[in-house]
Simulated scan of single mutants.
Amino acid sequence: MTAAELATPGMDFELPPELEAHEPPEARGTPRDGVRLLQGQGSTVSHHRFTDLPGLLRAGDLLVVNTSGTLPASVPVAGAPLRVHFSTELADGRWLVEVRGADLGRRPGQPGPLRLPGGATVTLEEPYSRGRLWFASVTTRTSVIDFLHRHGQPIRYPYVRRQWPIEAYQTVFATQPGSAEMPSAARPFTDRVVTRLVSAGVQIAPLVLHTGVASPEAHERPYPEWFRVPPGTARLVNETRAAGGRVVAVGTTAVRALETVADEDGRVAAGEGWTDLIVTPARGVRAVDGLLTGLHEPKASHLDLLAAVVDRDLLSRCYAEAVRAGYLWHEFGDVNLLLR
């Protein structure tokens, strides 16, 4: 596969099944911070381990990380071979949910109530997107978050062959539960890597964006997600840019949150709420100079966001090289550092 073959709208390419990460790296005999890291910058693509990250950044750079914690957001339906995936809590108290079969395949669902464990009910009201996500009202005896921790499991897809505990889906930065799926770009970070980054003069700033249920089949555009950029993070972003440092987002979620509160000059303000921002190459990015991210599926809408950070030719060469060199995809796979 060549870069030219990948340089098409939507980045369509063939992902060989053997490049899908089926389990956490720890189960493969690799520590969290031992996964591979592919760097793309300018005209150069280079191979590293994640533990090399402190040497790939510069003193004065700023990493912006998502501190959202992962929920056990997959709950079985009583009396039916179905599971409900809790995606996003909306401002009116309803949820966006997805219905899947016991085989983890996507199901269109029908309007009406579904009985859940513990006497809870989720009522599908109307479709939100292409028959996949639904507006739903939820009735539980406790808060929905408590209900999920009592009765749910982490969301997984068929390429993950067995269930792993919720701890496998948490990052070292996770402090506020709320994401249906792990903000996985930050998974390789460990205490020792963070210590080395700080010692090298790289600052780290937090924000929150509760990510909803992605779909490896649908490749849909993003939907509203709740975020918060605190005043301290906004200040650090602005100070870093003014001093000539680089703002490197850890994950597409961090890009989406920062760009939501950035003005046309790239100055960031504190803010919170639900964002429906779609970052595309046509829009570009204003506050972000780089991105640490996982490897995304063919035609995934996230690839448009990546192409807003670096040019499509570099992105295409990164993906061609990742396939050639046998990098691993998905939430338990390897990572890609893209610098403008």
Rank of each mutant, 00 (worst) to 15 (best):
A174Q: 06
G29Y: 04
G290W: 03
P9I: 11
P154L: 03
H210Y: 12
G109Q: 07
S129Q: 09
P111H: 10
T195H: 13
V84E: 00
L305W: 10
Q41N: 10
E239P: 04
E23W: 11
L114I: 14
D334I: 12
A168R: 14
I166V: 10
L277V: 15
S179I: 02
R115E: 15
T195P: 07
Q176V: 15
L258C: 02
A320S: 13
T70K: 03
A186Q: 12
E181L: 14
A200P: 01
L15H: 00
Y223W: 13
G266Q: 02
D52Q: 07
T233W: 06
R256D: 10
R317T: 09
P108V: 10
G10R: 04
A218L: 15
L71I: 01
L337K: 06
G326Q: 09
L71H: 03
T140Q: 02
V84R: 04
Q39N: 00
Q163V: 12
T8P: 08
V279S: 06
V250Q: 05
P25M: 05
V97I: 14
Q170R: 10
G244M: 09
V248M: 10
A320R: 08
H85V: 12
P113A: 14
E321L: 09
Y169Q: 01
P72F: 06
R228T: 02
G55A: 10
Q41F: 06
D289G: 11
E217I: 00
A262C: 07
H85C: 11
Q41E: 15
G105W: 05
E321K: 13
V248D: 09
S74A: 14
R192H: 14
E217L: 04
A254Q: 01
W95H: 14
D52E: 10
G119N: 12
